[in-house]
Structure formats: C-alpha cells, structure tokens
Design a protein around this nucleic acid. Structure first.
Length: 274
DNA sequence: CTGCAGGTGGGTA
DNA sequence: TACCCACCTGCA
C-alpha cells in the first residue's frame, strides 16, 4: 500500500455522494475504485489515504481533486447559513474528475433514475463487457471501452438494465469511436457543454454534470429536481422557479466555484432525514 | 395493480 | 418559445 497525507478530504463522502458510481465496498472501510481502465483499492485513516492499484499517485490526486485549494473553495462558496451548514455537515466532500467516457455513460444512465440503479447499470455493463481482473482473492471488471461497446448490439447493452437509455449508450460509444471527444478538453466550458449535447440522451443537465464531474469545470451548475426543490426553498421563498433561472442565480451567487456549492446542497438535500 | 422517479427528444400550438 | 408526453425498469 502506498500512503499519502491529505487534508480536507473525506473518501466515503466523496465516493458516495452520487457523482461517481463505479466502486465496491471492501472490508474495513475500504473501497475498490474503477475509473475507466484504471483501478485501485483505497482506504482512509484520518488524514492519510492508503492505496494500491494499477494507476499512479498523480492519477488519484487528479481523480479526487486533491490538488485544488479546498479551504479557499469552501470560503468562496460560504455565502449563507444554508451552504455553511451543508459544508460543516459534509466537510471533506470533494468534486471528482473521473474518466470522461465512464462519466458520460454514467450520467446518460442517470436520467429519471436513482443512485442505486445507476450503480447497478454501470456494474452490469462492466460485468457483461469489461475486462475481468482478479485481485487479493476477489474478482471485478474494468469499465468497458467505447471501442468494445460500439461493436455491441443495442439489445445486448440493454441487458445491463438501463432500459430506453441503451440506445443513447450505443450512440455515445459510436460518437467516441469517431474521435469526436478528442478536442473536448481544449474547449471552454460553454463550448464543451454544447459539444457534449450533440450526443442524443445528453441535454443541458447531464452535460453540466459531465463538465463538473469529469472535465473539472468548477463553475458548472447542474440543476436537477433535488437542487431545484432545495434552492426554491432556500432562495425563492418556496416558489416554483424555472431551471434556467435557478442555474443563473446559482452561478451569480456562488461564483467561480459554484459547482462545489451545488454538490454540498445536493448532498444535503439527498441525505436529509425524513 | 398503479404510480412514480436525479431528464431528454420529438411533437404540437 | 413554451408546453406535453412517452420512455425501460425497479420499487413502493
């Protein structure tokens, strides 16, 4: 196991916050994390993370955004008691930057769905089409490549249980195999979002998720029904408000790290009792 | 059994 | 532009 000292990081909260789906719980608060073709075992002991796998420390730092100025970010989005409380309840939660292809498929699967089901879709896709590996006496699968999935029949993709989204998964695989994703990392936020929306099954909200959870645009602000309800309650006196209006309010109010504010509010709304 | 869920695309006025 | 509704499937 390699070790790394970390501050302002909570592994469990980050992995289980609904931004990332390809992980398995192991014994002793450990996880197996799969990020595209990369995998590692990881666990946290206070301000130390222990990890072992086929990817570098740099990859893990990038994946968990450990290179970003956490306390500065928190300070910049701490506008009021609503976010302040969400932050203190979830200190250590970070935005990840996961493998682009895996992120695209995960969020295509997210429409009108829920976290357990999205995880199930991703894991089934991996079991059906991803490379099988063994590690310390257990087996798991890498996430299948787009080159693999673009040769698979849509009907077979659907066996992973994503229903009507299977055709969008297939379309995304073809889009990637044509190399359409290659320039994405050089585009600015709004160009990248527009480009992603060329894929059927990716609209505004999912494109923003990919910008935030893979491409590292800290000012992406996806508005789903959870955030919508939460922000209507907090900032619009409970009045039903258009998604566009909530998005522009969020960007204006929270500033260049508004995506991080979104994640804290989202997590807060989703885990609230009752 | 019915109804609904972390959106989107396609159709209509 | 602004609505409406079907869409797979799992789970209440």
């Amino acid at each position: 196991m390699e070790k790394k000292f970390v501050r302002g990081f909570n592994l469990s909260k980050t992995l289980e916050s609904g931004q990332f789906f390809n992980y398995y719980s192991l014994d002793q608060q450990g996880y197996l994390v799969v990020d595209g073709g990369c995998f590692f075992e990881v666990r946290q002991e206070n301000e130390k993370i222990l990890f072992k796998g086929n990817c570098s420390e740099e990859h893990i730092i990038h994946l968990f955004s450990l290179d970003k100025p956490y306390d500065l970010i928190l300070k910049s989005i701490s506008k009021d008691n609503n976010v302040g409380k969400a932050i203190s309840d979830n200190y250590g939660l970070r935005i990840m930057r996961q493998d682009l292809w895996q992120c695209v498929i995960s969020f295509i699967c997210s429409s009108v769905s829920n976290v357990p089901r999205i995880r199930s879709n991703i894991i089934h896709l991996s079991e059906l089409f991803g490379k099988k590996l063994s590690n310390d006496g257990y087996a798991f699968h890498l996430f299948p490549s787009f080159d693999t999935l673009c040769k698979v029949d849509e009907k077979d993709i659907a066996k992973a249980g994503m229903g009507f989204r299977a055709k969008y998964v297939k379309e995304a695989a073809l889009w990637f195999s044509e190399g359409r994703h290659l320039g994405l990392k050089n585009l600015n936020h709004s160009m990248a979002r527009e480009h992603l929306m060329e894929i059927k099954g990716i609209g505004r909200k999912i494109a923003e998720c990919i910008c935030l959870f893979s491409l590292g645009f800290d000012d992406a602000f996806p508005v789903d029904v959870w955030i919508k309800r939460e922000m209507e309650r907090m900032y619009f006196k409970g009045k039903s408000t258009k998604i566009d209006e909530i998005e522009s309010f969020g960007k204006e109010y929270f500033g260049r790290y508004c995506g991080w504010a979104q994640e804290f509010l989202f997590h807060n709304a989703r885990t609230r009792k009752n």
